[in-house]
Design a protein around this nucleic acid. Structure first.
Lengths: 198, 198, 198, 198
DNA sequence: AATGAATGAGCGTTCATTCAT
DNA sequence: TATGAATGAACGCTCATTCAT
């Protein structure tokens, strides 16, 4: 049982059908949780027959996988559009944290649902979004290698990525003002971990 | 639909029945995932009739909630038994990280399954384990308030707890040697965040 | 996917449930064909919930297999009860043909439906009924081996069994009088094939 | 719902479309059984759109009926091309049996599938092939009426046709050498039934 | 004439839950 | 108290068929 999309929608009509299905899946996932996501419900909410759903997605899993992929791509786009511009590492870190926060803010509820509601084994595909952040982070740190406290940059990434991810999820549950305070604290944590004299 | 256990089991026989049911739930959860946990399967594995299951648990959710609670209590016990003994804050931090790691190692598979397989909204109850760690951490930090970098201890806790939790989950997926390296790196991160001159 | 019955019905209530299910299957199979046999329809006709059906039969195939087995057993019983009593081979043959006809007359419609409607691969199990007739036939012929025309008794059986089976099915579509004429003609055919001077 | 072909295809393109559809049906029927025959699958395998399929066949049943008819016609052609040439009845019988065997050997897999997989009520139309053989057989026997053992030639046909048909199906499941042995045994059976001194 | 997106009734099956025994 | 037969809503999914393009 593969979860590859069944056919690429050529006509405009088809594309909007696929779109409506993913939108419906997202909405139900956010509001009723993973167990609420039934293929019939998704089709109904999308205003599409159940048969049409199965023309584009071979099974329920494929629906979730496609939704995750689309969400990840959106996040990547947001993230890459905000790549740090300064040469100062401290400023770069601040900007990166801000960018990640920004990326997570879009569809934050969907992000939470995707992470917490959907059983892990459903979403087996590699996490492209994570890869992107990792690449970004390494390309950020590499030039400053000599001023960094941790000698093992890979290890540092393995420490920082889940940390930042988790903390940003925590922050997203807070009000806007609290969130900003926390964002700065996250930046601070990262800089303390990476740099001396901070 | 509440998920409170239906009755407090006074007799020994009842207690062992409840125990068998939770054990069965845990085993199935770990080996077959959340979707594999069906009430009939749990009852069968526990060597108990489905009717008896419903005498002790009003519904399936209650089974999972009770299992989570029991697991959390086990973890607490392990954690408290290893409370730091030194006066030196740096050593205390190392010991606390080690203790949390130890606590998570027990039934690590169950822990993972509980976190990753079970939909979040099923396990709505307050997180006693987290509270315990938070209390522990605050009582650890409070005496050293003046030497700490963060002025807001509550905020520091909100930063540190999810961070440590996440990183320890990452560490548990690694081999024993890698795990130890990571454990020290976590300690290092915490100390850099909290203390100057580290 | 095995088609073994799921559980042996112990209580009387269960036995009658299983019976009602097989009866319903037979009735629908005869009147609406194999495609008409849906699990929900069977359950409804049996006056039983669909859940109960699946307590005793793991899938739809099992229902058909069980029905076939039960039908074969009925046929066997009828057949064996009419085992030839004479020593004269010619009379024995007549009696055997009559017995087979008798056996097929019971639930003849079910027999036809089972043979013609149900896809062959659904009913994979060995045909005990056929085995029984084969054994009966061999034990009938063996003592007269020297007066038989065909030297290869096994081959003779492979010729006679399908022939008699087919012809009896043809006969069952006729009126009672025609059927009797045909029965004698079948006997005649068998005796001509086996014996000289006939 | 009639299963008459929707339109008689006049143009060559149409004929080849119909042909491709029947070919596809046959192939799927043989390799995946009756349940594997879905209209969409047939259309796809035929390289034709599902819409086109429904322009030539009003429903799925019509597809099977047409396939059966075409198969029967092929068999007839084969059979008639091998009409017995001798005047000796014994030789004629041998030749006829051989001819029927030959006719069945072509597309034997399709023949089996048509007989065993397709529910009987789907293929309700009169059996032209059988009629042909019956005519052939009667025209064969009529001239020798006085040397035949059975006085009722029609009855003899009703006995012989299903018998030969069944036995040839049995034979087709055997290896080539065994098949030849069986073919001779079938001839022998027919001759014993029809003629004295055999 | 040909396409293929869309339909939806209905399939086989599961499983949390009830209740007569 | 314990049992386990029974329930039935609801699931994921198929496929013959239609019809706008």
């Amino acid at each position: 049982m593969t979860s590859q999309p069944r056919k690429i929608p050529h006509q405009l009509r088809s594309q909007s059908t696929v779109n409506a299905l993913l939108e419906a899946t997202a909405h139900i996932l956010v509001h009723q949780g993973y167990v609420g996501v039934t293929t019939n419900r998704v089709a109904e909410k999308a205003g599409v027959s159940i048969g049409s759903l199965y023309q584009y997605f071979p099974n329920k899993q494929a629906l979730l996988v496609a939704l995750r992929r689309r969400h990840a791509e959106t996040m990547q786009t947001t993230l890459l559009a905000m790549a740090p511009r300064s040469n100062n590492l401290r400023i770069q870190i601040d900007e990166l944290i801000a960018a990640i926060m920004k990326a997570h803010e879009e569809d934050s509820a969907l992000h939470q649902a995707l992470e917490n509601e959907v059983p892990e084994h459903i979403l087996v595909e590699d996490d492209h979004a994570n890869k992107t952040v990792q690449t970004l982070l390494i390309s950020l740190l590499e030039p400053h290698r000599k001023v960094l406290l941790p000698s093992d940059i890979a290890l540092a990434c393995r420490i920082l990525l889940p940390t930042v991810d988790t903390l940003i999820h925590q922050a997203l549950r807070l009000s806007l003002t609290e969130r900003y305070v926390m964002q700065q604290e996250i930046s601070h944590l990262v800089k303390r971990y990476l740099l001396a004299d901070t």
